[in-house]
Amino acid sequence: MDDSTIRLALERHWAASDAGDFTAEHDIYAEGAVLDYPQSGERIRGRANIRQSRLVQPNTKRFKVRRIIGTGDLWVTEYVLTYDGAPSYTVSIMEFRDGLVVYETQYFADPFVPAPSRADLVERPGTEAP
């Protein structure tokens, strides 16, 4: 499977995730896929279990992809996952085999107030001049 085909599959996956289309969202996973959440210490094994874990999650979720980067069998998506209006900055690392995800790790980070000590060194994305 070439990179453009995998990129399209990822775009469909994240669009389906945002739309709450649990069937299309999980088309990207192999039957024996493994999903790890290192921060909570959870591992979910199998496409059906991954799908079920998301079906029973009670929060309203929205997904906004910031960027997708990868090549070959390794792809990373940076996105903002909003649970009930609260954003979490998220990274998904997916490993593909035969065009399907066989392993995924997701990392989550909550927003935080920037340190005043570096205020004169930073810019805020979206506020810079063209």
Rank of each mutant, 00 (worst) to 15 (best):
D2P: 08
D3E: 06
L55E: 05
Y107D: 02
R67G: 14
T127S: 15
T77N: 04
T71L: 09
G85K: 09
T127L: 14
V91R: 02
E128P: 09
P116H: 04
I68Q: 07
E104W: 04
N59E: 13
E25A: 11
S88P: 06
A119D: 07
A24G: 06
A19W: 02
T71H: 15
T105H: 05
R43H: 09
P111Q: 04
A15T: 03
D84A: 11
T23I: 12
T127Y: 08
G20V: 00
D120H: 15
G32P: 10
Y83C: 09
L81Y: 03
L74K: 10
K61F: 11
P114M: 08
E11I: 06
N49S: 12
S117R: 06
G72I: 06
Q52T: 04
S92A: 15
G126K: 04
A86Q: 14
A129S: 13
P111T: 02
L8E: 09
P87A: 03
V113N: 07
S40N: 11
Y83Q: 12
A115G: 12
P116Q: 03
I44H: 00
F112M: 11
A86W: 07
D18E: 01
A119C: 05
Y107H: 12
R54M: 12
K64V: 09
A30H: 09
A129R: 14
T127H: 10
A86C: 05
E78A: 11
L121P: 04
D110E: 13
F112H: 10
R51A: 08
D18V: 00
V34N: 00
S53M: 14
I69V: 13
E104N: 13
V76F: 07
S40F: 09
P38S: 07
A48D: 15
R7L: 12
Y79H: 14
Q39Y: 07
V80H: 00
L55H: 00
Y89M: 09
Y107F: 13
Q57C: 08
F63M: 06
A19D: 04
V122E: 12
E104F: 05
R7E: 05
T23M: 05
T71K: 14
P116V: 02
V102R: 05
I68K: 01
E31A: 15
P38A: 04
M94H: 09
L8T: 06
D110Q: 15
Y37F: 15
A24R: 06
R97P: 04
T71N: 14
P111C: 04
A86T: 13
R7W: 01
P58V: 06
G70T: 02
T60I: 10
I6L: 05
L81P: 04
L35F: 13
D84H: 10
S4P: 07
A109K: 13
R97D: 03
S117F: 08
G72H: 07
A24F: 03
L74M: 14
I93L: 15
T60C: 08
T71W: 12
G99H: 02
Q52P: 10
L74V: 12
R43Q: 10
A109G: 13
R118W: 09
I44G: 01
F96I: 01
